[in-house]
Simulated scan of single mutants.
Amino acid sequence: MNATSAGTALESFDADWQDWHAAHERNRAHPHGFLAVTHLHWPGAEATPLEGAPGTWRVDNGVVRVVLEPDESLQRDGQELNTEGGTAVTFGPLEERSGINLASGDTVIEVAKRGGEYIVRPRNPGNPLLQEYQGTPAYTPNAAFSVAGTYVPFEVPRTTTVGAAVEGIQHVYEAPGEIRFKLAGQELTLTAFNGHAPGSLSVLFTDQTSGRTTYQANRSLSVVPAADGTVHLDFNRAVNLPCAYTDLATCPLPPAENRLPVPIEAGEKIPYERQDQK
């Protein structure tokens, strides 16, 4: 490749990253995204009002039950649930890591299951964390941190238990395989979990920048293996999970084997509002 071609390729690499990062920032700052979360509630067996949400809430026989007063509104998919001037509504049972979104005025009420427990998280676009969000700093894109690897499936998916950003719960994932790659002259391996998109894998990791220039608990990278097992790991697209921004998140921590012994000076850094934690 001559100098002109190399320069054009680098410009394209940078431009692609800029477009991706801008889109990721727009998604992060969605009016009802995780920056809008105002409370994290763990309803129990006793009916209790939850700040930021209408009604009284309890968990009973594996489902969530809400009793609404006559003047309270709660909608699902645009349909008003409080149709009788005071209604009891049931949600669930829900699968682990699944959830539903309900509407109450400008607020979205997330009902989900995390670590085997139900959570209720109101999301309001007026939340100061969202209103004051300045964007997330990131390393200048560097093609040296965009590397090829090989996805090696396990003979049987491995049940993997990891900690969480909040105390008292654990997350259990099925790890279908591992990704092997070389970086900074070292042979490295990362355990992969199934990703959100079909055919994708999610990798949680820390590295030698964690707690210094990048968030100390975790970062995440999404990859899609080819049919022959080849995979492209672009660490310039390593992103923060919600727990990097708010204490109202239940994010998983990486498995112990995903603590990389090299500095990954690529991808997102510590958010502005967490710079004091460096």
Results as ranks from 00 to 15, higher is better:
263 P>H: 02
255 P>T: 10
186 Q>Y: 00
259 R>E: 10
205 F>C: 09
246 T>Y: 01
183 L>E: 07
69 E>N: 14
132 E>F: 07
241 L>H: 05
135 G>T: 07
87 T>S: 13
262 V>E: 05
106 D>R: 13
26 R>Q: 13
6 A>D: 10
235 F>W: 14
63 V>L: 00
236 N>E: 03
109 I>Q: 10
121 R>W: 00
173 Y>E: 03
243 C>P: 13
202 S>C: 02
265 E>L: 08
14 D>N: 09
246 T>H: 01
203 V>C: 02
137 P>V: 10
49 P>E: 14
245 Y>N: 00
24 H>I: 06
202 S>L: 14
195 G>I: 04
69 E>V: 03
191 T>K: 09
273 E>A: 00
56 T>F: 03
269 K>N: 01
256 A>C: 03
54 P>R: 12
106 D>F: 02
146 S>R: 10
135 G>D: 04
135 G>R: 11
29 A>N: 00
217 A>K: 14
94 L>P: 03
207 D>C: 04
129 L>W: 01
92 G>K: 02
201 L>E: 06
78 G>R: 03
3 A>P: 05
126 G>F: 05
19 D>Q: 09
253 L>R: 13
157 P>T: 11
191 T>Y: 00
90 T>S: 12
278 K>Q: 07
3 A>C: 02
141 P>R: 12
11 E>C: 02
159 T>C: 05
205 F>H: 14
253 L>T: 12
160 T>E: 07
52 G>A: 05
22 A>M: 07
21 H>W: 08
95 E>I: 13
162 V>R: 13
194 N>L: 14
89 V>I: 14
267 G>K: 03
141 P>V: 12
38 T>L: 00
25 E>T: 08
171 H>Y: 09
54 P>V: 15
124 N>P: 00
